[in-house]
Amino acid sequence: MKIKQIQEEIIDEFAMFDDWMQRYEYMIDLGKSLPLIESKYKTDDYLVNGCQSKVWVRAELVDNQIVFKADSDAIISKGIIAILIRVFSHHEPNEIIEANTDFVDKIGLKDHLSPNRANGLSSMIKQLKLYALAYQTKINDE
């Protein structure tokens, strides 16, 4: 499935809920299925900068596709990174780099995009895209 299709799938899932509380509960549930980063990588090197809670992310290239794993010490951040990883993991770097991220607005997470949010959703997106860019550069060099 393409990134765009996964995003639409998530938008549909969130559209089923009437209020923010149900959406948050669903997001928290999604956090429970997050592919977890191995504990040895839960170090400062893998921290996403600019977060009030700790969010660790690591990327690997498997068959030319990026596979992300992550974890967080806060439940809401874990839900957010789980959604992002569901969208971005298992795609080629270029597709990740070029992906539009408007969907976060459509699932009611817009307030997490403000620069004031210490757990910036935008920092997480930036980090995932930076990994993609790094791998794409590596592929181009080879």
Binding site: W20, M21, Y24, Q52, S53, D73, A74, I75, I76, S77, D111, A118, N119
Partner: peptide, 21 residues
Amino acid sequence: NIHPYDIGSILDKFGIATRTG
């Protein structure tokens, strides 16, 4: 063991301004 950020985010949804961190 609930992270302060989590509680602060939910309280915000209820219109309650607190400081976390």
